[in-house]
C-alpha cells in the first residue's frame, strides 16, 4: 500500500513537434499517495501527459516528479515494480479472451502460469466477467472490454495504479459498475484517474486536480476546491421567473432560459428570501465540481491572456 506522497516540482513537457508549446507548464503537486487522485480537464489540458510521465512512459523536459520518494526518471525501474496502468485508448486484443488478456499481463509481470491463471479467473469473476472469461473479446460489449482492461491492473500486485479515462465511451450503467470496481481498487491502492466526467471525479476522488492548458489550476479535495472559490453557492432559477439583482456573484443563462447565480453564502440566503417572496421556482445548493471547474478554467484563461 502506497503511504507517502506524490510530488511534482516544476514539471514541464514540450513535445519536439509542438513548436515550443508546453503540454505541461511548471506543474507543482504535493498530495498523499492514497485513495483516488482524479485529474480533470478538457481535451489537450495535459492530463495524459502528466499521467504518462508519472507512469514512467514519457520523459519530462524539465522539473522533477516522485511517488513515495521514488523518482520517476532516475529510479524508473524501482517504481515500475509498484505500478500498473491502463492507458488512454488502450484496447483489448480482439483475438484474445479476457482470461488470456489478464493471464498474459500477469505473466509479463513475472507471475507463474498457475498463479496467473487462478488470479485471472478470480478477478474476472469479481468484476462480473466470470461467464465470459473464455469468450473472444471481440464478441464482448464495450463495457466488458473496459472491465477486462481494469481487471488486468486489479489482478496485478501493483499498489499504484494509473487509469487514463477508463470510462470514456461507456454507457451510464457500465460506467457506474466500473465506478464500483474503482472504489474497491482504491481501498488498498493509490489510483491516479483521469476523466472527462466531472461527476466521476466528484463521486470517486479523494483529491482532484484541475488541469487547463498544461497548468494545474486547482488541486485539493472537493471541499478544498469549493473553499478556493469565493462564490460558494449556486441558485438555479427556472425560465420565466424574474432574476433578482446580484451584487457579489455572477449570473449566467442557459439556452432554455434557466438562470444560474453563483454567489456568496450570505447573498445566497438573501436572494432566496427575495425569490420565495416573489414566488419564483428555484433551487439552491453548494456549488458543484462543474461550477468550480468552469470558474477555475475561466480564471486560467484570464491568466493566460494576461501573459
Amino acid at each position: 500500500m502506497a503511504s507517502g506522497e506524490l510530488s511534482c516540482k516544476g514539471l514541464t513537457k514540450v513535445y519536439s513537434a509542438s513548436n515550443g508549446r508546453k503540454a505541461l507548464d511548471s506543474v507543482d503537486v504535493r498530495i498523499p499517495s492514497r485513495g483516488i487522485f482524479s485529474l480533470i480537464g478538457m481535451n489537450g489540458a495535459g492530463k495524459t501527459t502528466l499521467v504518462r510521465i508519472l507512469a514512467t512512459q514519457l520523459e519530462p523536459t524539465s522539473g522533477a516528479a516522485s511517488i513515495d520518494g521514488i523518482d520517476v526518471v532516475s529510479q524508473a525501474a524501482r517504481l515500475r515494480e509498484r505500478i500498473a496502468t491502463v492507458p488512454q485508448e488502450a484496447r483489448t486484443v480482439p483475438w484474445m479472451t479476457p482470461k488470456q488478456t489478464v493471464l498474459s499481463y500477469l505473466m509479463w509481470r513475472g507471475t507463474s502460469y498457475a498463479d496467473a491463471s487462478a488470479k485471472a479467473s478470480e478477478v474476472l469473476g469479481r468484476v462480473g466477467l466470470g461467464q465470459q472469461e473464455n469468450v473472444l473479446t471481440r464478441r464482448l460489449s464495450g463495457g466488458m472490454k473496459r472491465k477486462t482492461l481494469v481487471a488486468t491492473v486489479l489482478a496485478s500486485e501493483a499498489d499504484i495504479v494509473f487509469l487514463d479515462e477508463p470510462t470514456t465511451g461507456l454507457d451510464p450503467i457500465s460506467r457506474k459498475e466500473l465506478w464500483a470496481y474503482l472504489g474497491t481498487l482504491a481501498k488498498d491502492r493509490f489510483v491516479i484517474l483521469t476523466t472527462h466526467y466531472l461527476e466521476e471525479a466528484e463521486e470517486l476522488a479523494s483529491c482532484i486536480g484541475i488541469m487547463h492548458m498544461g497548468r494545474l489550476v486547482g488541486l485539493g479535495s472537493l471541499d478544498d476546491l469549493r473553499a478556493s472559490v469565493k462564490q460558494q453557492y449556486s441558485i438555479r432559477i427556472s425560465a420565466g421567473s424574474a432574476v433578482p439583482e446580484v451584487k457579489e456573484g455572477a449570473v449566467t443563462r442557459s439556452r432554455s432560459g434557466e438562470a444560474q447565480i453563483l454567489t456568496t453564502e450570505a447573498e445566497a440566503y438573501g436572494l432566496s428570501r427575495l425569490l420565495l417572496d416573489a414566488g419564483a421556482k428555484f433551487s439552491m445548493s453548494k456549488i458543484s465540481l462543474d461550477d468550480i471547474f468552469f470558474h477555475l478554467v475561466n480564471r486560467g484563461d484570464d491568466e493566460v491572456s494576461r501573459r
Binding site: A55, R80, A84, T85, P87, E89, A90, Y105, R109, G110
Partner: peptide, 14 residues
Amino acid sequence: NDFKLQDMVVSSPT
C-alpha cells in the same frame, strides 16, 4: 499503437 500494449508493459516490472 492500436492497443497501447507497450505502454502497459513499460509501466510494469517487465
